[in-house]
């Protein structure tokens, strides 16, 4: 623990500025962090590429061109072509569209669901806890892959938004369990008890005290989920669910290109590089958000090396 002790000699400002409140302070810290800005810029650029990219190239992602099979990148085919002559650039940006949205939405959806269920189960305890945890266990033992396989043909008409929900729905249980156990220990902390003795309503306590204090874990978990969602979508697509040929996503491109990577690297590396860039950018944003929410973050870092063993009353 590091404690920057304020001495009594802090200059007294004239007048009383109204206190800023947590939201404003966090926002200020967030925008002051370089990593967040870089990450956000990269994500923005990726979105631009994904949605404007198709207009930059004359090729269509689906039309095969049997006269140009497996051509390396050139001025004509920027990312080269694949086994049936489709333009890889067109395919990659098309795939990027899907994967960006799927990755972000699945992460958001499953994290929100997990934190609410976990925090409610942990905070309220008793029957709420038992019922919610039963649900979690049930979802955990269900073969999620099978369910998605069965359900997804029925959802064909509704587009991939339903698919996002499905992916999210099978991704939150472990997180919820962790949030629950963290909530159980937070609930015993005095500041949570103080709030409830003051008459703060339970949901407000969850929103204002519990969730901010598990936010570090939630953010790390969400950034991992982004990458994971893209890949599990690919796995499903491989078996013909989710994104179906001739439509593509980064996941399907990667799955298809893996085997060819040593011989025809352009089939694999462009898509892979974009995915890595995406996950990296999300990580940067996540790190910044975590630091912005944790007030000890910047004070803690330089002092970590200078930390001395803490004993009572040294």
């Amino acid at each position: 623990m590091t404690t920057t002790v304020l001495t009594d000699t802090v200059p007294v400002p004239a007048g009383d500025p109204a206190p800023s409140g947590r939201l404003r302070l966090v926002l200020a810290r967030l925008t002051a962090a370089r990593g967040v800005l870089v990450g956000a810029a990269i994500v923005l650029l990726l979105f631009l590429l994904a949605f404007l990219g198709p207009y930059l190239t004359p090729w269509d992602y689906a039309t095969p061109n049997y006269t140009a099979i497996r051509q390396p990148p050139s001025a004509e085919h920027w990312f080269g072509t694949n086994g049936i002559g489709q333009d890889v650039f067109a395919q990659t940006v098309r795939g990027l569209q899907k994967s960006l949205v799927i990755g972000l939405l699945v992460a958001l959806f499953s994290t929100v669901l997990a934190s609410l269920v976990g925090a409610c189960a942990g905070y309220f305890g008793g029957w709420t806890d038992r019922a919610l945890m039963f649900l979690v266990d049930l979802m955990l033992i269900f073969p999620s892959f099978l369910i998605i396989a069965i359900v997804s043909p029925k959802l064909r008409g509704t587009g991939w938004l339903a698919f996002v929900l499905l992916l999210g729905l099978f991704n939150w249980m472990i997180t919820a369990r962790v949030v629950r156990s963290m909530t159980l220990s937070l609930k015993e902390r005095e500041f949570v008890r103080a709030a409830s003795f003051m008459g703060v309503r339970p949901f407000r306590i969850i929103l204002r005290h519990i969730l901010p204090n598990v936010s570090s874990f939630l953010i790390i978990d969400a950034t991992i989920t982004v990458g994971g969602a893209v890949m599990s979508e690919a796995a499903l697509s491989y078996f013909g669910f989710g994104v179906r040929a001739p439509d593509v996503s980064l996941g399907t491109l990667l799955a298809a290109g893996t085997g060819d990577a040593p011989v025809f690297p352009w089939l694999f590396y462009f898509a892979a590089a974009l995915l890595v860039l995406f996950v990296l950018a999300v990580n940067l944003i996540g790190d910044g958000l975590r630091d912005a929410l944790d007030p000890t973050a910047d004070a803690g870092r330089p002092a970590r090396t200078a930390r001395r063993p803490r004993r009572r009353n040294p």
Binding site: P19, S20, G21, R22, L25, R189, E190, F191, R193, A194, A195, F197, M198, G199, V200, R201, R204, R208, H209, P212, N213, S215, L293, D294, P295, T296
Partner: peptide
């Protein structure tokens, strides 16, 4: 109202002091 023994544990480490003091008012 109550004041607890351990001043570190009874204040939410992630809340600015202004919000902490205003909390019972909001409640």
């Amino acid at each position: 109202q109550i004041v607890f023994q351990d001043p570190m544990a009874s204040l939410d480490p992630r809340m600015p002091v202004g919000d902490i003091v205003a909390e019972p008012l909001h409640a």
